[in-house]
Design a binder for these strands. Sequence first.
DNA 1: TTATTAAACAGGAATCATTCTTATTTAGTA
DNA 2: TACTAAATAAGAATGATTCCTGTTTAATAA
Lengths: 147, 147
Amino acid sequence: MSLPETELAVFMERLRESGIKLTHQRMEIFKEVASRMDHPDAASVYERVRERVPTISLDTVYRTLWMLKEAGLITTLGPAHDRLRFDANTAPHHHFVCTICGKTEDFYCDAFNSLNVPQEVNAIGVVERAQVELRGLCNACAKEETK
Amino acid sequence: MSLPETELAVFMERLRESGIKLTHQRMEIFKEVASRMDHPDAASVYERVRERVPTISLDTVYRTLWMLKEAGLITTLGPAHDRLRFDANTAPHHHFVCTICGKTEDFYCDAFNSLNVPQEVNAIGVVERAQVELRGLCNACAKEETK
DNA sequence: TTATTAAACAGGAATCATTCTTATTTAGTA
DNA sequence: TACTAAATAAGAATGATTCCTGTTTAATAA
C-alpha cells in the first residue's frame, strides 16, 4: 500500500513537463497501480480505486492507464492493445513485439534456446518453455515516429 | 500454403489417441493455422477457412483453436485466455506465465538482464527492452493436474 | 451398407471488455 | 475570482468471445 515518495514525485513531474493536468483521479489510479506487485487488469484497478473515489468511472481508469503507458510510467503485458493470437510454430523460437502496433515477428537464436532458469523460479512452478520477448519499435512504426 | 505430410499426420494421430473426432472443419482449421507464419487471430483464420468451407461458424473456429492448444499442437501469444494487464514494475524483471490459469509472476535474474540480441533482429526493428517469458504450470495448477 | 449415438456443428443470442459520445466539472492560469 | 481547455461521469456503442439450442455427422458395430 505504501508508495515511495520518489515514485509519486516522478509521476507528478512527468505529467507537469508534458502539460497533462494532475487530477485527483489520476493521482489515485497511479498510486493504486504502482503499489501493486501483481498485474492488475483495468477492472481490478477500478474496483479498488472506487473504494476511495466512489464516483470514478471505468472509462477514466482506462484512459489514465493508457496515458501512463504513453508516459513510460507503466507497461502492459501481452501483445499491445490487441486481441488473442495463435501460433502454430512448434519449433523453438522467440518474439519481437512492436510496442506501438503490436505486430509480433518470430526470430531464431540458438543462444536463447538454452537459457539457464534460475533456482528461484522453482518456487513458482514447473517451466515447460523459455522464450525471449524483445519489445521495441518495428521499422514501419519507427518511420511514422520520425515525422 | 503447403503443409508437410508429417504435420498433418501428427495432427490426425493426436486426435485419434485422444478420442477426438476428425471432422472436415477441424482438418481445414488446422491446415490453415499450421501453414501460416504470421500469428493470426481467430477472425483471420475464420475468414480464410470460410473460402473453402462457406458454412463454417466463428464459434467452431474458436472451439477448434482451443482444442488444438489443449492438445499441444499450437500455442497462444500473450497471457493465456485472459485480458489485458498492466505492470508498474519499472525495474528490469522477467515473467513466469502459467499456461493453464494465466497467472503471471515476476522474477529477477541478472543473467537475463544482459542478453545479447542477435544481428538478425535489426532487420525487424529497434529493441528497447528484452524480457524472458517462462511458460509452464504454476504450483496451484500442477496440484489440480495430479487428480 | 445401414443404424445408432455421442460428439460436433451452425446460427444466433448473450456476455464481457473496451471505447466512444456528450453534457458537466475542474485544474491551471490570468 | 473568472476563464478556458482539458478531463470527467454516465451510459450507449462496439467488438471479441462464449453460450444455447436444434440439427448434422464421425465413429462404431450390427
